[in-house]
C-alpha cells in the first residue's frame, strides 16, 4: 500500500480512538463518582447505562444554540474551535505500539515521529490556553472573563514547572523524540525510576493544565457560575467539556510514554519468545498494554477528582510558584550532579 494511505488510515484511527475514549471518559467519570459516593450512577440508557454518552451527545446537539447579542460573534465561535483543535493535535507524536509488518511494508503505529516531538507537544499545550481566553473574553460577561483569566494564569503558571520537569527528563534520555524515549525504556528501566520527582511534578502540572480537580478553579458555581463557558450552550459548550476529556486522555498517554515505558511492558520479549508470538502479535499486545496504562491514568484523574478537595486560588498559585517551580529547578540540578557523578555527561 501507499505509505500516504497508511498514514491517513492511522490518523483516522487515532482520531476515532481519541474521540471514543473521551466520550466514554464522561461515562466512566460518572460511574467512578457513583462508586466512590456509594451511588448507582447512570443506568437508564442501555445496559448499565452504556449508551449514556450517546444520549448526552444527542442532547448537546439538539439544545438551542444561543450566541449572546453583545458578544463578539466570530471570536465566540473561534474559542471552542481552538480548544478542540489543540486538544486533538497533541495525539500526533505519541507512539501507540511497536512496528507492524503487512506483507513487505513495515510501518510504525505513530502518526509521525518528530525529532522535536516533546517541544511540539509543549507548544500545542501552550496554545490550548487561547481557546479558553478567547471564549471567555468574547462572551462579554464578567464571570466568563474572570473564569478565563483564572484558567489562563493557572495554565501559564503550571506550564513553567512542567517544562522544567520535562527538561530533567530530556537530560536523562538525551532525546526529544517520543519514539526514542519509549524505545530506550524497552532496553532499560522505565523513566520513573530515574525521574521520580520529575514524574510527581509532571503529573501535578498535568492536572492543572487540564483544569481538573483539585485545580478546577476556572469553574466555580458559587463564585463564577460556569467560569469561561458560562455563556456557551449546545455543542459549543460540549466542545469545551469534550476538549477537557481529550486533554485528559492525551495527558495520560504522555505520562505513560514519558515515565512508564509507553507501550513496553516488563519481560515482553521473554513472553513473546516463550509463547512463540510473531512481531505483529507482540505489537498488538503492546498497544493493548499501552491502553491499559492510559486507562489507569484516566482513572487516576477521576480518583483524585472525587477524593481530594479543591484548592483555594491563592493556594494554587503558591503551590505552582513557590513549591513546584523551586522543586523542579532543584530536580534539574540534582539530575545534572548525579549524571556527572555517574560519568554520563
Amino acid at each position: 500500500m501507499d505509505p500516504l494511505i497508511i498514514k491517513a488510515i492511522i490518523v483516522l484511527i487515532v482520531f476515532a480512538i481519541t474521540l471514543l475514549i473521551a466520550t466514554y471518559s464522561t461515562y466512566a467519570e460518572r460511574k467512578v463518582a457513583a462508586i466512590m459516593q456509594d451511588r448507582v450512577g447512570p443506568d437508564r440508557a442501555g445496559p448499565m447505562g452504556l449508551l449514556q454518552p450517546l444520549a448526552d451527545a444527542v442532547k448537546m446537539f439538539m439544545k438551542e444554540e444561543i450566541i449572546p447579542s453583545v458578544s463578539n460573534k466570530w471570536l465566540f465561535i473561534l474559542g471552542p474551535c481552538i480548544a478542540m483543535l489543540t486538544a486533538t493535535m497533541t495525539g500526533v507524536v505519541i507512539p501507540w505500539g511497536g512496528p507492524i509488518t503487512i506483507g513487505e511494508t513495515t510501518f510504525d503505529l505513530q502518526i509521525t515521529d518528530l525529532n522535536i516531538g516533546i517541544l511540539y507537544l509543549f507548544g500545542v499545550v501552550s496554545l490550548g490556553v487561547y481557546g479558553i481566553m478567547i471564549g471567555g473574553w468574547a462572551s462579554n460577561n464578567k464571570f466568563s472573563l474572570l473564569g478565563a483569566i483564572r484558567a489562563s494564569s493557572q495554565m501559564i503558571s503550571y506550564e513553567i514547572a512542567m517544562g522544567f520537569a520535562i527538561i530533567a527528563l530530556v537530560m536523562t534520555t538525551g532525546t526529544l523524540s517520543l519514539k526514542e524515549i519509549v524505545l530506550q525504556q524497552d532496553a532499560g528501566f522505565a523513566n520513573v525510576v530515574y525521574q521520580p520527582v520529575g514524574f510527581v511534578i509532571f503529573i501535578i502540572c498535568a492536572f492543572a493544565e487540564t483544569n481538573r480537580a483539585p485545580f478546577d478553579l476556572p469553574e466555580c458555581e458559587t463564585e463564577l457560575i460556569g467560569g469561561y463557558h458560562t455563556e456557551y450552550s449546545s455543542m459549543k459548550l460540549g466542545f469545551y467539556l469534550f476538549a477537557e476529556y481529550i486533554n485528559m486522555f492525551i495527558s495520560s498517554a504522555v505520562i505513560a510514554s514519558f515515565y512508564f515505558g509507553g507501550y513496553n511492558f516488563p519481560f515482553q520479549h521473554e513472553l513473546a519468545n516463550a509463547l512463540g508470538m510473531s512481531a505483529n502479535a507482540l505489537s498488538i499486545l503492546q498497544v493493548v498494554m499501552f491502553f491499559g496504562k492510559i486507562i489507569f491514568f484516566i482513572f487516576l484523574f477521576m480518583w483524585v477528582r472525587w477524593t481530594i478537595p479543591r484548592f483555594r486560588y491563592d493556594q494554587l498559585m503558591n503551590l505552582g510558584w513557590k513549591v513546584l517551580l523551586p522543586l523542579s529547578l532543584a530536580n534539574i540540578f540534582v539530575t545534572g550532579i548525579v549524571m556527572w557523578a555517574m560519568g554520563k555527561l
Binding site: L119, F122, G123, S126, L127, V129, I149, S153, I156, E159
Partner: peptide, 14 residues
C-alpha cells in the same frame, strides 16, 4: 511558537 505565541502573546492578550 512556544515562546512567542505560547507565552508572550498570552500575556499581551491577558
Amino acid at each position: 511558537i512556544i515562546v512567542y505565541a505560547g507565552a508572550i502573546m498570552v500575556l499581551f492578550l491577558y
